[in-house]
C-alpha cells in the first residue's frame, strides 16, 4: 500500500505547480530527494481546495529502504552508497557518449569506445567511494565529456578549485591537472586508473558537496 503524506497550505498563497520552490519549501526537497534516492516513486498528486485553504496530497509508493543503490548501465553493474547517488546519475547521463558517431563534432572526432567509458566510470566510482568510506566526505560529480581524440575528460570545478582528468583508451593511467586558480599549489601528473592514489584522493576532497 502506498503511504500517503498530506500537506496543508496557508490560505492566500498562490496556486502553483508542485515543483515550485515557493509553494512547497519542504515537500519539494523531499520530492527531489525521493526521486534521486529511488526510495520513493511519486505516483499521484491531488489538489483539493476547501474553503480558503489548499490541501495537497502527495502519494509515494514506498520501495524498500536501502543504503546502497545498484544499477545496470550499458551492461555495467554499479553499486553506490545512497549518499553518492548523484555520481551514479552522472554516470548514467554520460553513457550517451559511447553512442556518439564518428566525426561527432564535424571536425573529425573519433568515437568513444566502451572500454574508455568503462575505465572513466571505474575511476570515478573508485575515488568517490574510497573518499566516502575512508573520510566520510561526499564529493560532487564531475562533468564527464567526450574528447575529439577518443578520450574522456572528467572535470571538477568549484569556486575554490578546478581539476581536469583525462582517460585515454590505450593507457592504464589517467593524466590530470588541478589548481586553486593560482599558480601555487597546483597538481599535475599521471596516476593508475585501477588503484587509489591517496595524495590525489586528498586533493579531490576539495570538491566536497
Amino acid at each position: 500500500m502506498p503511504e500517503t503524506l498530506q500537506c496543508k497550505y496557508l490560505p492566500g498563497k498562490p496556486q502553483k505547480s508542485l515543483t515550485e520552490d515557493s509553494y512547497f519549501p519542504s515537500y519539494r526537497k523531499l520530492w527531489e530527494f525521493a526521486k534521486k534516492a529511488y526510495l520513493f516513486e511519486p505516483i499521484s498528486i491531488k489538489r483539493d481546495i476547501i474553503a480558503f485553504s489548499h490541501i495537497q496530497t502527495i502519494k509515494f509508493a514506498m520501495r524498500q529502504a536501502v543504503d546502497e543503490i545498484e544499477k545496470q548501465i550499458k551492461g555495467l553493474k554499479f553499486s553506490f552508497p545512497i549518499e553518492l547517488v548523484h555520481i551514479l546519475n552522472e554516470i548514467e547521463v554520460s553513457s550517451n557518449i559511447i553512442d556518439l558517431d564518428k566525426n561527432w563534432d564535424d571536425e573529425g572526432a573519433l568515437q568513444i569506445s566502451y572500454e574508455t567509458w568503462e575505465k572513466a566510470t571505474l575511476f570515478i566510482s573508485n575515488y568517490s567511494k574510497w573518499i566516502y568510506n575512508n573520510q566520510n566526505i561526499i564529493i560532487s560529480e564531475p562533468d564527464i565529456a567526450a574528447v575529439s581524440d577518443g578520450s574522456i575528460d572528467l572535470t571538477w570545478s568549484s569556486k575554490q578549485a578546478r581539476l581536469l582528468v583525462n582517460i585515454k583508451e590505450a593507457e592504464t593511467t589517467a593524466s590530470y591537472y588541478g589548481d586553486y586558480f593560482t599558480e601555487n599549489n597546483n597538481i599535475k601528473g599521471n596516476i593508475p586508473i585501477n588503484e587509489i592514489n591517496e595524495f590525489f584522493a586528498y586533493w579531490l576532497k576539495v570538491f566536497k558537496v
Binding site: E107, G108, A109, A145, S148, D153, T155
Partner: peptide, 11 residues
C-alpha cells in the same frame, strides 16, 4: 568544456 580547446583536428 576543456575539450573545446583541442587542436583541430585533434592530431
Amino acid at each position: 568544456r576543456p575539450a573545446a580547446f583541442k587542436n583541430t583536428p585533434a592530431s
